[in-house]
């Protein structure tokens, strides 16, 4: 509905509304984002404004396009259409403000590096081409490891870490990026209880420092406890807003239930045409 209203709003130009219709200077504004893999849409006309200083949970069923949304915002995959602004500017001008925690399974944990080596990668962008990791970068990495409670494992080879510890290494690497806005892809997936607690505390610390965290989350039972803002996603944004307002059975039914038939049919019809 939101986008419909905007289409007819006086601010929109002849081609429809643009990114400039979104509030300025929010950490993340997504406008009319559509992403397709092999002609199959994964995200459909996503509009989002993430307010400053919030812990935001992104929730939705498997294949809802949650990871795709993060990757499209980070310019890691091409957008079919739409625009993304980080604090009012394109991502490529704002990289220094963003920290990224990819899914843990996305890398080979038998890679011959230590925990400290991985965390130090968070400092590479600032370090720039060709320069080696020095004392300053190592200190920052160690500090980040300390923040997630595993400084004592700094020199351990990453394959000798438990799943939870590996997840903490990834979080520490994002901390070493020293960002304002964090994108976290399923940091709670398959971690032990102690790590889950450590991550929750870390999120709260970041929140107190005024940072914004976008966290893809699977466990519906903890959404209301962990996040003060929630995005319900299933190819499109079903609902987005304060968790207490939008995390309702009705909205969840819309996100997870079989009520997306119309959209699915439209997608299939589109696939038939483009084949």
């Amino acid at each position: 509905m939101k986008s419909l209203i905007k289409t007819f709003s006086p601010q929109g130009d002849a081609m429809g509304p643009t990114l400039s219709d979104h509030p300025k200077e929010v950490p993340l504004a997504v406008h009319d984002l559509t992403v397709a893999y092999h002609r199959k849409p994964v995200l459909w006309d996503v509009d989002l404004d993430i307010p400053d200083g919030k812990l935001v949970g992104i929730v939705g069923p498997n294949g809802a396009g949650k990871s795709t949304l993060l990757k499209a915002c980070l310019d890691l995959i091409p957008r079919t259409s739409g625009e993304v602004a980080i604090y009012g500017h394109p991502y490529k001008e704002q990289r220094h403000l963003v920290g990224y925690v990819p899914q843990r399974e996305s890398v080979d944990w038998d890679f011959p590096v230590s925990a400290l080596d991985v965390v130090a990668m968070g400092t590479y962008r600032k370090l720039g081409w060709f320069k080696r990791v020095g004392k300053q970068q190592k200190e920052r990495a160690l500090n980040a490891l300390d923040q997630v409670g595993i400084a004592h494992l700094a020199n351990r080879q990453i394959s000798q870490l438990s799943g939870g510890q590996q997840q903490r290494v990834f979080l520490a690497r994002a901390l070493a990026q020293d960002a304002q806005l964090y994108f976290m892809d399923e940091p709670f997936a398959a971690v032990d209880a102690a790590t889950e607690q450590a991550i929750v505390e870390l999120l709260q610390t970041l929140n107190k420092q005024g940072k914004t965290c976008l966290v893809i989350h699977h466990d519906l039972a903890t959404v209301a406890r962990y996040f003060d803002w929630t995005v319900l996603l299933n190819m499109r944004v079903v609902a987005a807003g304060p968790t207490s307002d939008i995390f309702t059975p009705d909205n969840l039914e819309k996100t997870y239930g079989g009520q997306l038939n119309v959209l699915n049919q439209a997608v299939q019809a589109l696939q038939e045409i483009t084949k």
Binding site: R95, V107, F183
Partner: peptide
């Protein structure tokens, strides 16, 4: 030798490398 750091990052985690603008 010169590209040691860059190649390491690329081989370990190309998505993270891409997000940092490499």
């Amino acid at each position: 030798a010169i590209l040691f750091k860059e190649f390491t990052l690329l081989c370990f985690d190309d998505a993270f490398a891409g997000s940092q603008g490499w």
